[in-house]
Amino acid sequence: MKSLLKGVVDILDIECYISNCLDNTIVLISDRSTQKENMVGKLAKLADTHIYSLLDLKTYYAIIIRLNNNETAVIIPNSDSHSALESDLNILNITYKVKTLCKVIFETYTNSVAPEDDIYIENSIPTKIYLDNNEYLESINQLKFYNQKLFKSILQQNIASYTRVSKDISENNYIQSISENNEMIKMLMHEYSFTIARITELLNFSNREVMYIKKRLYGLVNRIDFSIELSYMLRQFFQSVERLVLIAPYYQNDASSIKKYIDLNISNRLHLDDISQNINIPLQSINRLFKSKYALTVRQYIMKQRIKIAMSLLVETNLSISDISKNIGFNEKSHFMMSFKRATGITANEFRVNNRHTQ
């Protein structure tokens, strides 16, 4: 069977290893090899609970197939598409075909009908930490479970489930353990952005919609403010994903598309001409369309949303008033303080003291 399998993997141009947990051996099936035996062994152990697994290891992908109680196939597709987050369409083609590939390898090696199990997909951050150490193993395994639920909720367009599991991820102990590691935080956010962008293609979003989502998600990651608590940052990120992927179609020339654009850019410069140019609605029509649906002018809605975010930041973070005003799009602290008091009847400092005291 190994000789037949070698012919298959050579045709497919993939690396293939067979790991045997009974005698702790690793057999290279393909001509090409880039993996060390100890790494192949670690990857094989990840197949304990799944027949087919697709592991995203950031710089490459690994496909794990549990062939029987003792043997596991470790497959490394020949793809360098991880070299740039914007160039992910090649690997998407692989993910479409992973189950077929798994079944071919399984049936070629075992000479029996392959199981119809679903592909277990895992992202790189928990996998990398799992392979390196087990200090946070329980929290990491919990995070893996939450990630699966998160991606499933997006695929099923289940907003209630998405909201619950995104909160669980934000509060996960491992996530909190990296709160001081800026590089790891950014890597984690990039990973979620990358995976969610791929999911939108599986949901048959148009190319224009997918590129719009990528631009917004990667933009959010590149503008990360590391002075904000990680759990709050993640909640804001997941809320942006919800607005982008789970709520309402894109680029409809109506009031909802104006609102969507404002919500996604609430921390940025927001003038009517910016909105007009980005969503292709005539400048003179924006306020009329928006007010007819929401009973507010665009400026009133922007101010309302910014004050709402400021209230949350005042209670949930230790950011200074000056930093909060900048984070929600105010150029001047004095303008923010005046706007906040006009909207709430009290100063920002009074609001912070009163609400923290009551929690």
Rank of each mutant, 00 (worst) to 15 (best):
K2D: 11
L4D: 11
L5M: 08
L5I: 06
K6R: 09
V8E: 03
I11Q: 10
L12M: 13
D13S: 12
Y17V: 05
C21M: 08
C21F: 08
C21W: 07
D23R: 05
I26S: 04
I29N: 01
D31L: 09
T34V: 09
Q35C: 13
K36W: 04
V40T: 04
K42G: 10
D48R: 09
I51M: 12
S53Y: 02
D56H: 11
T59L: 07
T59S: 13
A62E: 06
N68C: 10
T72L: 03
D80V: 14
S83I: 13
A84I: 09
L85K: 11
E86P: 01
N90I: 11
N90M: 09
I91T: 11
N93Q: 11
V98H: 00
K99R: 12
C102H: 00
T108Q: 08
D117P: 01
I119R: 00
I121H: 03
T127V: 15
E135R: 15
N147R: 03
Q148D: 09
Q148R: 13
L150K: 00
S153V: 00
S153M: 02
Y162I: 01
Y162M: 05
R164T: 12
K167E: 15
S170R: 03
Y174P: 01
I178A: 10
S179A: 12
E180C: 06
N181K: 14
T195L: 05
I196V: 14
I199G: 00
S206M: 04
S206F: 05
V210R: 11
V210A: 05
M211K: 11
I213V: 11
K214L: 03
Y218F: 15
Y218S: 06
N222I: 05
N222E: 15
D225K: 07
F226V: 06
F226Q: 06
E229V: 06
F238V: 00
I247D: 06
P249L: 08
P249H: 13
A255M: 04
I258V: 14
I258H: 01
K259N: 15
D263Q: 14
D263V: 13
L264T: 03
L270G: 01
I279D: 01
N280S: 14
I281S: 02
P282K: 15
Q284R: 15
I286S: 03
L289S: 14
F290V: 02
S292T: 13
A295P: 02
L296W: 01
T297I: 07
K304A: 12
Q305T: 08
I309K: 15
N318V: 03
L319G: 02
D323T: 12
D323H: 11
N327T: 10
N331P: 04
N331G: 15
F336R: 04
S339C: 15
F340Q: 01
F340E: 02
R342Y: 09
I346C: 13
N349T: 10
N354K: 09
N355W: 05
N355A: 06
H357F: 12
H357Q: 07
T358D: 05
